[in-house]
Each structure stands twice: as C-alpha cells, then as structure tokens.
Amino acid sequence: MTEPNENTERKGEGCIRVKDPLDAILRAEPNIKVIAPEQKGSRITVTLQPQDIRMCLHRPKTVRQLLAALDLAEETALVARNGELLTPDRHIWPDEDILVRKVTSSG
C-alpha cells in the first residue's frame, strides 16, 4: 500500500497512516467480535483459544494489560505473537494479531 485511499492518509514522506483502525479491521474480517467499538485509536486483533474466537479490542500497551482487559489472571492463559510466547511485561503494538490460550483443562 503506497498510495492513500479513502481509509488512509499521508503522514510525511512515504508514510501512510490508517485513519480508522477499526474500519480497516472490519473490512478484512466482517464477522470479528468488536469489544468497545466506541473507543477510538489503535486496535489489535486476538484469537481466544481453546474456542478459537476472533475479537478486536482497543490496544493494551502490554501483555499484562491485555490479560486484564480480557479479565484473565496471570498464569491462567498463554499469550503469543507470531508463534512466540510473551511474558506479561512485553509490549503490544498497534494492529498486532495476538493469540491468547486459556490453560484450564476441565479436569
């Protein structure tokens, strides 16, 4: 994507910024579950396992904040990005796609 379209704007030399991150996500995945759609600003997408639910939420800055946003205690879920596990202190950046896998087995 080198030229701006109706959903992006030029931001300095050679740099394109998405105007509405939620709109861009919904174009790619119309059925994704949107958490707090009224919140503006950068977003991330999440796959919540084991059920494989796709959702999209306002960007938490760290893994710790992501777990809190999903109401999960530490050490009750794995968090990974591109196949790499992340400890709670790791940063999360706009537009990232994150895997959250709850660990509790039914016993």
């Binding site: 396992q49 084991p50 494989d52 050490e75 009750t76 794995l78 990974a80 596990l85 896998r101 660990v103 509790t104 087995s105």
Partner: peptide, 15 residues
C-alpha cells in the same frame, strides 16, 4: 496447568 500448557505450546502440541 500453566507450566504444562507452556510446554505443550513450545513442543508444538496442537490446540
């Protein structure tokens, strides 16, 4: 359970 889940992930055991 958390430790076992991490191990399973790192060893490529599918969800």
């Amino acid at each position: 359970e958390f430790e076992t889940a991490n191990y399973a992930f790192l060893m490529g055991i599918e969800n």
